[in-house]
Design a protein around this nucleic acid. Structure first.
Length: 421
RNA sequence: GGAGACGUCGCAUAGUCCGGUCGAGUGCGCCUCACUGCUAAUGAGGUAGGGGUUUUAUAGCCCCUCGGAGGUUCAAAUCCUCUCGUCUCCGCCA
């Protein structure tokens, strides 16, 4: 949610942002009008209520014989107050509906346009060259006997899979490596609930643009989360954090569930796009003025992980139209996938500035001890999808896959995964 | 699943039976000041959040919030309904 005062003070900034996103610019003037109406309605209500309160004190103190007359007056007042209160509430609701539709103000420097208008920031590492025909991760998973997609489909349907043997251990190794790195960097590990109540799903904004993506359990009125960001963002909701001199950093591990409703026919092969996977997510709460620096740090930590996994990658600055509504800027780190001849997203980090925290009412005490809205940022540090990049980039001519050195310690020293004979 | 108790301003509690003098007392914690070789102790004062409004500002005034949502009433922390959460006992079960 954007700041209401911004509607009055700098509507042009919001409009420019909506334009860059290709979002509805008309919402801005509409919201400004509604805000004004709400304010007037509220003031009228407050004036009447003040009268009613003052009168109520008279009633309370009046001697018995005068009470009946005073109560009769009070009854009239009460009716007016109720009417005006209802009007003020209605105005508030109308404002909120429109306000929630306005997306976060994109930061300076974010490229305008849609998905294809991203800006390339850098390319790191060298793409592998193969003297043989490289296999894709599905073929490797099968020949190494570490990914079983057929049986996944048998028991749960398409986009489900089993990780087996060293495949299962490799996934845990990636998670462990990421968790260790995060812990060293000062993150607090959190294993989060993956079922949440409607108001949390709503509050984190995932029932808006992503609602078709979300699994829902009607019998219990609970939602399955598609990322631990939901739980991590809700963690400090309705709280005032005492000390944000240093950002508060959490590393949330959870299984993630996604319906992939809008992606029929896309990435149908393998485990690139699945209904269930594991993810380690970084999440930072910080002062708004520290948010951009924190964003760079999250990005640096992500790159560090890619480098530990010895993967060639590029970093892109995602265009305004391709940002989530909460994000003011987003960087994706994409790994090279040899058999696709293209880069694919392994991590994504968003600076949500105060947008997300305002809606969830997460604040901190500034230098004067006054509460102010915090900024939130999130970024992936590891997911199941990393297996795809690791398997494909590190495959050898003999059909084996070399394990990146940084991961070997988590696999009991195993250096490579060899095909089943 | 059954029975019951509870949810109040950082923490602990009073207030709820019998509605108005309660936006709310006390203790602890914390902050400021005084006293004091230092610390401790003691004394005085302060100590929730949001919104609006007046003012150069300090500050003041008004409105809302006693887990949440409704309702009754001229008036609700207090009465009623629902809901969420916590705890205890019983049952059942990974």
């Amino acid at each position: 949610m954007i700041e209401i005062s911004l509607l009055r003070e700098n509507p042009d900034l919001i409009k420019a942002s909506q334009t860059a996103r290709g979002a509805d610019v008309g919402l801005v003037d509409l919201a400004a009008d509604l805000a004004e109406q709400k304010k007037l309605a509220l003031q009228q209500f407050e004036t009447l209520r003040a009268k009613q309160n003052a009168h109520g004190k008279l009633v309370a103190q009046a001697p018995k014989e005068e009470k009946a007359a005073l109560v009769a007056q009070a009854q009239e007042l009460s009716a007016d107050v109720k009417k005006q209160e209802a009007a003020a509430n209605l105005a508030e609701q109308e404002l909120m509906v429109v306000l929630h539709k306005i997306e976060n103000i994109v930061l300076d420097g974010v490229p305008a346009g849609g998905e294809e208008n991203f800006q390339l920031i850098k390319e790191v590492g060298s793409k592998p060259t193969f003297a043989f025909e490289p296999k894709d991760h599905v073929a490797l998973g099968e020949s190494l006997d570490i990914i079983d997609i057929e049986r996944g489909a048998k028991i749960a349907g398409s986009r489900f899979y089993f990780l087996k043997g060293l495949g299962a251990r490799l996934e845990l190794a990636i998670m462990q490596l990421a968790l260790d790195q995060a812990s060293e960097a000062g993150f607090t590990a959190l294993i989060t609930p993956t079922l949440v109540k409607p108001e949390i799903m709503q509050g984190t904004g995932f029932l808006g643009e992503h609602s078709a993506e979300v699994y829902y359990l009607p019998a219990d009125d609970l939602y399955l989360t598609g990322t631990s960001e939901v739980a991590l963002a809700g963690y400090h909701s309705d709280e005032i954090l005492d000390d944000l001199a240093e950002p508060k950093r959490y590393a949330g591990w959870s299984t993630c569930y996604r319906r992939e409703a809008g992606s029929h026919g896309k990435d149908t092969r393998g485990i690139l796009r699945v209904h269930q996977f594991n993810k380690l997510e970084m999440f930072s709460y910080c002062k708004p003025e520290d948010a951009e620096a924190e964003h760079q740090k999250l990005l640096a930590w992500q790159e560090q992980m890619l480098q530990k996994c010895e993967l060639p990658y590029r970093v892109i600055d995602v265009a305004a139209g391709d940002l989530g509504s909460s994000a003011a800027r987003k960087f994706d780190v994409e790994a090279w996938i040899p058999t696709q001849g293209d880069y694919r997203e392994l991590t994504s980090t968003s600076n949500c500035t105060t947008y997300q925290a305002r809606r969830l009412n997460t604040r901190y005490r500034d230098q004067d001890g006054k509460p102010a809205t915090a900024a939130t940022l999130n970024g992936t540090l590891a997911t199941t999808r990393w297996l795809v990049a690791i398997l494909e980039n590190h495959q050898q001519e003999d059909g084996s896959v070399l394990i990146p050195k940084a991961l070997r310690g988590y696999l009991g020293g195993v250096e490579k995964i060899a095909p089943k004979s």
